[in-house]
Amino acid sequence: MAFNKVFHVKNEAELAKVAADIAPCLARGTVLVLEGDLGAGKTAFARALIRHISGDTEREVPSPTFTLVQTYDIPDGEIWHFDLYRLKHPEEVYELGWEDALASGTILMIEWAERISPLLPRFCVRVVIKPEADGTRTITVKA
């Protein structure tokens, strides 16, 4: 089933609203790929999702660029938030517990997934965030 929905948001609060809207569609084991340039709002989107799913609006969700992966406990499992910006070779993702992550049926959110495109599962949810000239964002959700 192809799913393709486009949202236009004016600010981070509206972006968080979109994240909350799609959160119920993310079953355990979903691989969510976040696409967009530096500063587009990928981490902001992931943060809003993690906060919504864990029911904690204040939850600290720092950028995973340095640590490469952060994990979050949620009521019925975990969310793994990857940022593969610093990866040089796809195979390096195995060092980050990639196989465990896939096998455990947790929700995976991945920024800069193109670094490991040969290793991605066939079925991913894609969220493409495109900044527009007027400062708004176009968010496309594809599944």
């Binding site: 720092p62 950028s63 660029t65």
Partner: peptide, 8 residues
């Protein structure tokens, strides 16, 4: 930091 590190 609530998001990015300063060096980042």
């Amino acid at each position: 930091t609530v998001d990015d590190a300063a060096g980042e």
